[in-house]
Structure formats: C-alpha cells, structure tokens
Design a protein around this nucleic acid. Sequence first.
RNA 1: GCCGAUGUAGCUCAGUUGGCAGAGCAGCGCUUUCGUAAAGCGCGGGCCGGAGGUUCGAUUCCUCUCAUCGGCUCCA
Length: 571
Amino acid sequence: METKRDLDILRHSCSHIMAQAVKELWPDVKLGIGPSIEDGFYYDFDKKEPFSDADLAKIEDKMRQIIAGNRPFIREEASKEEARKLFAQDNYKLELIDELPDDKATIYKTGNDFMDLCRGPHVASTGEIKAFKLLSVAGAYWRGNEKNAMLQRIYGTAFFSRGELDDYLRLLEESKKRDHRKLGAELEYFSIEEEMGAGLTFWHPKAGLLRKIIEDTWKDEHIKRGYQLVNTPHIGHAGLWKTSGHLEFYREYMFPAMIVENQEYVLKPMNCPGHILIYKSKTRSYRDLPFKLAELGTVYRYERSGVLHGLLRVRGFTQDDAHIFCRPEQLEEEIKKVLDLTFYLLEKFGFSQYDIYVSTKPQKYVGSDEHWQLATESLKNSLEARAVRWQEDPGEGVFYGPKIDVKIKDALGRAWQCTTIQVDFNLPERFKVGYIGEDGKEKQPIMVHRAILGSLERFLGVLLEHYAGDLPLWLAPKQAVIIPIKDTCLEYAKKTTDRLREAGLRVEIDDRRSTLDKKIREAELEKTPYILIVGEREAKTSKVSVRKRIKGDLGVKTVEEFIESVKEELG
RNA sequence: GCCGAUGUAGCUCAGUUGGCAGAGCAGCGCUUUCGUAAAGCGCGGGCCGGAGGUUCGAUUCCUCUCAUCGGCUCCA
C-alpha cells in the first residue's frame, strides 16, 4: 500500500529528474531547491532567459529520456569541505551547505549523469516514475524572502499511475469551471470595473439579493445569541488610528490619509476602534459583560496589486465582524459560544468539513505571559469541549494575542480561510477600555475579535465555487422562472407569478418573444432551481408543469401544491 | 511590490510580415405562437486597455502606464 510519504518521495524524485533535464538542456542554470508539495513538486532555477511554455514540453521530453534510461539514485556522503568543492559553481547550494548542522552533506546521483545536494530519500531508480506532468512556471524568491533574488519555479506533479494523474488533471479542469470569477461573470453575480478601481466589487442584482439573504440570516442569528448590531463610520480622524496603533503597525495596508479642513482623515481598515468607541461612550459595569457588538463592517485595505484575486482578495470588503468585551473568567465560555455560532452558520451555508488551527505566541508580542497562557488555554479548551479536531500553528499568532483560524473545505476539498477568532490584549490597553468591578474598582476587559464568514465578498466567491454556481433553493436569487408557452397564456402566467410571490417565492416571468426550448435552455444554464411551464392546459386547471433543474420534468401540479412542496423543501 | 504571460464588439475568439477591423453567441427589428436544452431572415455594434514615440501612415514596431491571469511574499 502506497502512503502519502511514498508519494512525496516519488514527487521529490521527479523534481530531481526535472532538475537534471533542465541542467542538460541549459548547463549554465543554477539550482535552488526542489521539494514535494501538497499536489506535486517544484524546483527553483536561476536562469537569465525566462522559461517558456514550449520549454516545458522540451523539459518533459528530456525527463522521459532520463526515466527511460532507468538510472539508479545513488546516495553518497561528503564532508562540508568536499561538498563545497563539488558545488563550487552553485552559490545557492553553497548557502545550503553552510547551514548544515553536522559536517556531513548527502549527495544524490542519478547514475553518473547528475548530482544534487539533497537530504533524500528518493525512489530506487528513475524508471519508477510512471506518470508526471509539468504544469506551470512562476517567479519565486530564493528562500521565500522578497529581499532575495527572484528565481524561476517550475511546478509539476507526479502520481503512481497514469489513472491517478488523469484524475488530478480532471480535478484541475473542474476547478477551472467552478472558478468564481468565471461563474460570477457568466451568471451575472458581480464584476470588478477597471474604471472604478482594482479590487473594488460591484454586486449585481442577483448578488445583491443573495447578500440580503446572507445578511438577514447572519443578523437574525446574532441577535438571538446576544449580540447587539451597530454601524460605524467608514472614515475618521487619523488620531484614532494612531491610538489604535494601526498607523504604526498597519500603515502599509491603509489607503493614504486625506486632509479636510486641516484635519487628517483615514479610511478604516478595521472595525475594532469604532466598536471600542461605542463601548467607551459610557461607563460600563461588570454586569454589562460580556458586551458583544456586531457589524457588517466595510473596510478598505491597500493590498498590493499582485495579490488581488477575484472576490477572494479585494481592497474594499465587508467583514461579518464582532467584538466581545468580557472578563478573563468569561473568556472560555465566550469562545465556545463563538465556535457554536461558527459551526451553526457554516453548516447552514453548506460547509461541513474544516481545518482548524490554533496560532500561539509569536516572537514579538504585547501583553503578559499569564494573559497569553490563559487565552491560549481558553482557545484550546473550547475546541476540546466541542470535540473538533484541530492543530497548532506555533508562533503564528498576531502580536496582540493568540487566535483560532477555521479553513472551510469546499465540494472539491479545497480549503478557504474564512473564520478567525482572535484574542486581543493590546487594544483594551491602548484605549484604556475599562469596566467597574464588583469591588467598585476599574478593571480591564479582554477583547475578542471574530469574523465567521470572513468577508461577504470572499464568502460569495467561496459559495459560488462550492456549489459550482448551483445554489441551494434557499439561497438561489431566482428560485423559479415561469414560462408561458404562448401569448394566450400570458395573463395566467402573470397571475401565477403574483400568487407565488405572495407566497414568498422569488419568481420571475420569462415573457420574451422566444421559443420554449430556448427559454428552458437559458433557465437551465442560469441554474434556476425550478422552471414552471404554463400553457392552455395548465391555465384551464390552475396548474403548473414543474421542471426541476437537472432532474427534469416532474409533471403537473396545482399552484397550491407546488407552493406546499417548495415550502416543505425549504424546511 | 516582484517574476512571467495576456489585453481586439457585451461574451468567446480570429486577424493585420505597418495600408478602410472579422466570426459565432448576445442585443435590436421583422416573421414564427411553439409542450420540456439553441426557429428563420435582416440590422446595428469597435479610441484593437491608456499615454507618448518611430513612420507618409501604428491595432500591428518601441517606451511608459493601467488592468487581468499563473506564482512568490502577504492576508478576511
């Protein structure tokens, strides 16, 4: 039985073969590193001329020759000194040799043709590679640091069999079809207009309606769970952001300040200071805690041009944000409640698989060690109490506190970071946030930032990809379309539309002058859940002919029966 | 921001070795009134992403710039 580790070894070996092929084709190329990754492998090369797509085909051919040669992978050891001589031409390898912990470098050779500094292990010989494909070329900084040289990275993948490789390539194709940018345009959900600016989203009518459904669901559930809904301004005095520390620590993500009547204003990149000002608008008592403010808060962040990506990374977005002010002893209970709300909402929207991470204290941090420990324990205990699987991300917490991140998995198993729950020791201190304790003395609450859907923009993108645009009935902006077969049935179709709307259904009538087949085709392509066809037969009997998306013709029902069945389906 | 690629009609894409810009779909008009995935005919539609430059002439060549795509770095 082949394990994930076997697959990693196979892929890493394949990256060696790729490096050998590149070296044979372009002897002057210098090698970086070539590890296996989640879905394949890469190797970084330092080469003056960029690789073209045609080059990839050439490299693949050369790799096939090497594989056909079935050369053994031979492991050798050398002292650092010896290794330095062997790799004297390769400055990147020399850097790696210098960093080796012992005076021992391992070198792998494929026959006598090629050698590489490498920890290994590898497959026994090149002939074991049965199925591989090179996928793309991209720039990548040496050692992932943007201050270093930019190398050229070639991505590829390899599998034990041709069949598995084909399955993977099919998955890639499927992902492309589900791309929210493609679906968003085709189904007319959203657009990003160059005239308005990069990373700024236009929600078209269908998305506007879908957003209302999401917002209502979200707001209702928050009110039920003791949150208070608020709204806060989008711009404000720079001084506020100085107090919060954003102008110091977050400036590179903020749009530049604007001057109005000699006063500096900035666009908010986060909602927290606003919520703090509401909290501080009067003296709070321990009896007011936990105090929970929630807002669908629109923020603007200057994201560097190269990182923008459809709806998943934009410059203006609305977070489903909330801040919980609580006493230290309430923290764990509150985290549990946030987790409950998270799982409730995500499942309601159709997500049931997650990867959960707890990020702990980083190198640079504020707050006392006791606070960090309390908060980190609270996060972990809450996850344990809810019996969910999680993993630790050591040192990856924010400087002001530890956090839980939830990455939801979509229908294709891809992970999306949406939910984040962050404990904050910093802002309460900076803003001198307080409450009067039972003993009459002023105390400082702990603050929790949390967003569950993440941002409405990103969530819309993830929803579209998860469902491949085929939204479940309760979310579908247009739940049904009524198609009159000819003009003589138009009156009945209109009457039926009114009746269905009165019953709360989102229905539209397609009274364009076009053929029935064409209207059905378009409604299907638009992924409308129900198509109701009405002709003279239906008009006479107060019925509709029901066609369900994908399933096809369900036969005739009375209008009232149809309303009943839909209500039942909606639950 | 960095490396590479790409911007032609609302969409998908041809095309011009520098000389009046093309198709399909969509749109509009007319005909067709149709029973479960594309009726027929016709008509419009373009600052060839933007700004400079070279040239008698630039959508085509050069420079800059903006946007998008694949990545790196970063992140809701």
